[in-house]
Design a protein around this nucleic acid. Sequence first.
RNA 1: GCGGGCGUGGCGGAAUGGUAGACGCGCCAGCCUUAGGAGCUGGUAGGGUUCUCCCUGUGGAGGUUCAAAUCCUCUCGCCCGCACCA
Length: 832
Amino acid sequence: MDKYIPADIETKWQRVWEEERSFEVPDPETPGGADRSEKSYVLEMLPYPSGTLHMGHVKNYTMGDVIARFRARNGAIIFHPMGYDAFGLNTENVAIKTGIHPAELTRINTGNINRQLHRLGVSIDWSRELATCDPEYYRWTQYFFLKFFERGLAYKKEAPVNWCPSCATVLANEQVVQGGCERCSTPVETRSLAQWFFRITDYAERLLDDFKQLESWPERVITMQRNWIGRSEGAEVIFRVDGLGIDVPVFTTRPDTLFGATFFLLAPEHELVETLVAGTEYENKVRDYVTSSRLKPLVDRAMAEREKTGEFTGRYAVNPVNGEKIPIWVSDYVLMEYGTGAIMAVPAHDQRDFEFARKFGIEVRVVVSGEGVGAESGPGLEAAFEEEGALVNSGRFDGMLNRDAGAAITEWLNGESLGRAAVSYRLRDWLVSRQRYWGAPIPIVYCDKCGTVPVPVDDLPVLLPDVEDYAPKGKSPIATNEEFVNTVCPVCGGPAKRETDTMDTFVDSSWYFLRYTDPRNDREPFDRAIANYWMPVDQYIGGVEHAILHLMYARFFTKVLYDMDLVAFEEPFNNLFTQGMIYYQGAKMSKSKGNVVNPDDHVENYGADTLRLYILFMGPPELDVEWQDQGIEGTFRFLGRVWRLINEIIEKAPADSAAGFEGLGGDIIKIVRKANQTIVKVSGDVSERFRFNTAISAVMELVNDTYLVKDELFQSDAGRGVLRFTAETVVKLLDPFAPHICAELWERLGHRRLWQEPWPRADERFLEDETYELVVQVNGKVRDRLQVASSAGKEDLLAAARASGKIAKYTGGKQLVKEIVVPGRLVNIVVK
RNA sequence: GCGGGCGUGGCGGAAUGGUAGACGCGCCAGCCUUAGGAGCUGGUAGGGUUCUCCCUGUGGAGGUUCAAAUCCUCUCGCCCGCACCA
């Protein structure tokens, strides 16, 4: 028998799959009318080509591959494409460091990843491969930007953003790590800059509503998105500035506490601040305060524990419910981005307002009374009372329960045109412009005469120009390329300048799953009918770190495309599976910690099959697991065991051995049953629960059992027939996990293409054992175990239990209370 | 602070109301071998023991049930997300 040499087998079959284009899937001839019931779009999040694949990727792509191969063998038409999220800061930073052009780096890295995925034997339709940095791809990313612009969903506005003074560039929120720049750790500042945004807030309600369309998204991910969107119900209440006659709306979730408002706050960025103080004695102090808070990093301002600061404006606001005049202050704990940038402050019932009032000596007035807190408790209060209670100091609403009073007060305000019920979201519009090089240029032109003009669709793509120096300087590096910047206005033909910002890479990855369906289309981003045929994705798999950003942006994009009638569905991913991370030596693998386990090394040492099998065997795929160097040895040994077992069977049990297992007994039939039971177990574990670890251990059991009886079974023709059957079952069941060794063994078993073979079905006749071990308990404690016939009824089981001498020992002389019989499991005799 | 998750042998884990610890790692023993870091077989929660049983045991305490790792209440520890969002 030859030795198991993974390298030889794996290259052999990878070549076959490539030459025969085994996993390519053509579009249906008439996609509009095609039957979609058998199609299955299996998708793993596309990799960012920052170098080579790490273990997390291997887990991701192996899981996807197991699902794809399993479904394919169960009759599905599998759509399983791959691409690269190839634009991005990471590559650009490496480029700056190494002097290698980002395009060249990307070419090298995508090449590596392509090679690694081939070496892992992942069943991908390579004919649909794409890279988001390819002009043929980003042309359509730009196209969508224009479509968004057309619909008013892309707009430019001045906004406070995170600024890294050392890198001289803006950073996305997610690129700010603990108040510092992710690249150089320099504390970030806040700057106000004109930026492009996508109006995702318009879709907040639908993003929330459509969770109900999602079939099996992890609760955790939905909760995270729900929190991120942060929907709050409340009221908008209009306060009038005394003496100036200006109306200022505020948003509050506590209209029930309106009578307790004792001051009024504006965010430092609020446009009204200047109007209120201009020409007054408060002017300078307030301006200084505004300036200093603008300099504070956004992250710092968001610290809940910070001491409250503020400045009085000298003006008063009129509380619409009681006509009371309350002082208007400016404070940086009020955020311009949320609600209206102005709030009514109710110190008795809001901890933040309470701290502010105490610091500046402002009245604390109780309007909701409860345990230990009454109408007169305000001055002595030690903390805000945020519990439920009855209204006091609230005029005609006194005595009402506060949870009813909110609606009543809102209704009253509505009648007086002083307010209305309102909903507010924590979600902000999506900042998509970046002053960096390696991204898709925003297809906009600025003309002195015509203003902001979109590039005509026919002129796309706006190619990313080559520049000498793409180090960040505060402006996009392409701004220095005169040839690029200077252009003509598409409307008037006069001189104009191009937008030089590029798009956030999350834009690129918000629609790639659609492009896969029609990746070479050069007339439109994709054909509507073809996309509608393959989409939505039936199973999406990726890391939980994308729970909010990528997954929410992709959902948003899909909804916009639906509104444009470009697709017929509103959610892109019907089912989502988030995999756990792989730790090593108690920590996340990272280059800086030096605890990286390189997949290539393990493919080299043990082969791809062993690596795939081990990664899935480690534990439930959704949980974080710890990589164990010795663990992988175990799976390698197992595959060696399989190899030797099957080859021995091929040798000693010829293909023409007896078939049909009727009338067999003893160990022989036990193995037949075990094989059939394993078919059921593996099928269920893989299809219903993605429990690959238990599926693999079931196959291990079958292999172990077979080892124990094989020498006996080789002696008879019937036994040899059973071993053949067992060998084929093992190979078929193991195939999705370890496809190379199984393809090889299948061929050696005298067949051809295992991946085209139907998934095995269990034979009902050989599923149930003839006898089983019945547990007999007395008062819930196991006292005996009896072999009983599977066919035995409740009475038989009870009789057998009573007849046991061991049981009699515990029941003797006691009074029988109850007897519980669970056929197939146990008998429990309760005595007193 | 709010929200979510997790806690089972030396280790990864299995069991989702019915035999706790499947399967694998590690370890121990036997066989085979010139040798083995190969292969095959057996053992391996803790304690007791008359060697066949007995007791204890799923972070801790209580409860429901004939029966709880599993359901409920409280509590401790760890991890993740959000966090001045009015």
